[in-house]
């Protein structure tokens, strides 16, 4: 199992390197560069100054030379300096990744609790109005775009006169402000996850509870609640974990929008600003970070199969 997961992760990293080459070349085809942006508000700028600035940043060199230079840096763990801020890109990524991860992890947590809870409840109440209501709710929430949900949340909060404190504060310095800032966007993100999870949990539960070993457990006199938790849920978790993995990708996509709506300085906003400014090293690093997160999540999902079901661990190794 471990070798399987690791092989996948290593492959992922190789793939990521290929992505970075394509990215590096592609972004240089987008018209406009950072020098235009830096001097956009200047009146007294000469073409010579523009050329001088480009040369200082190495933007006048052939793309391949630039790539060789950058790749050599990356291999030594140096992502380079932002053209825009002049500061190390790694610092910026480190700062921006915190709110993004915080949002996604919170959203996954909320989504799991709500979704798995609703799924188990629906499977217990199968055929009752409660089941129907939960299924309908999950169908609807699966269709509501996170974009709209975010805007509605913001409108709703404004309507009741509650204001999320701004600007964003890290949890480590101002925990209370931070909680207020991330809880609403995380909720807006989580409902879609919850909807997807509840549907899957429900059907997985129904499948498992019909299985022989559950009947056997019941015959042994285990109480129904105990059956669900110990046997049913544990077995139903395998497909749920797979789904969590794919949902994480959706969530990361969602954070790009939600960060924008709620003004959270995460990876999505960083990527956006760096595209706006043509800050190549930062764009590259931000995109690679998204890729890296995806690989890590896939690795975790692979490993967790084994933790939940030892048979998979054996089968795959």
């Amino acid at each position: 199992m471990l070798t399987f997961a690791l092989r996948r992760a290593v492959l992922g990293v190789i793939v990521l390197m290929a992505v970075s080459v394509m990215l590096f070349v592609a972004i240089r085809f987008v018209p406009g560069d950072i020098v235009n942006q830096q001097l956009s508000e200047a009146g007294a700028v000469t073409p010579e100054l523009l050329a001088q600035k480009r040369a200082e940043m190495g933007l006048d060199q052939p793309v391949l030379t630039q790539f060789a230079h950058w790749a050599a840096g990356v291999l030594h763990g140096d992502l380079g300096n932002s053209l825009w801020t002049g500061r190390p890109v790694s610092d910026q990524i480190r700062t921006a990744i915190v709110p993004t991860l915080q949002l996604s992890i919170l959203a996954i947590a909320f989504g799991s609790v709500l979704g798995i809870g609703a799924g188990v409840a629906a499977s217990l109440w199968i055929g009752t109005p409660g089941d129907v209501a939960l299924r309908m709710a999950s169908t609807v929430f699966l269709a509501v775009p996170q974009l709209w949900l975010g805007l509605l949340t913001l409108s709703g909060l404004a309507a009741i006169g509650y204001y999320i404190p701004l600007p964003y504060r890290p949890f480590t310095t101002e925990p209370w402000a931070n909680v207020q800032q991330v809880i609403f966007p995380a909720l807006a993100l989580s409902l879609g996850v919850a909807a997807a999870l509840s549907r899957l949990t429900r059907s997985a539960m129904l499948e498992v509870t019909g299985a022989d070993f559950i009947r056997a457990a019941r015959a042994r006199g285990v109480t129904p609640g105990g059956i669900y938790v110990r046997h049913g849920l544990k077995n139903a978790l395998i497909p749920v974990i797979t789904l969590l993995g794919t949902q994480f990708g959706n969530l990361l996509s969602g954070t790009v929008i939600i960060e924008r709506i709620f003004n959270i300085p995460g990876l999505g906003n960083l990527l956006f600003e760096s595209v706006d400014n043509r800050d190549y090293p930062t764009i590259q690093a931000a995109v690679l970070t998204y890729g890296f997160i995806t690989i890590v999540v896939n690795l975790l999902v692979d490993l967790s199969y084994g933790a939940v079901d030892p048979r998979i661990r054996e089968a795959r190794s």
Binding site: V30, P31, G32, D33, I34, N36, Q37, S40, E41, A42, G43, A44, V275, D276, N277, R278
Partner: peptide, 30 residues
Amino acid sequence: VDRAAGMALGREGNFEALYMVMSPFAEADE
């Protein structure tokens, strides 16, 4: 187009009509 692309198009003369925001100049001479 976004700002960076637009400025590049302007500088290259690669446009028919271009609508943008003037820099915040503080003197007629600018």
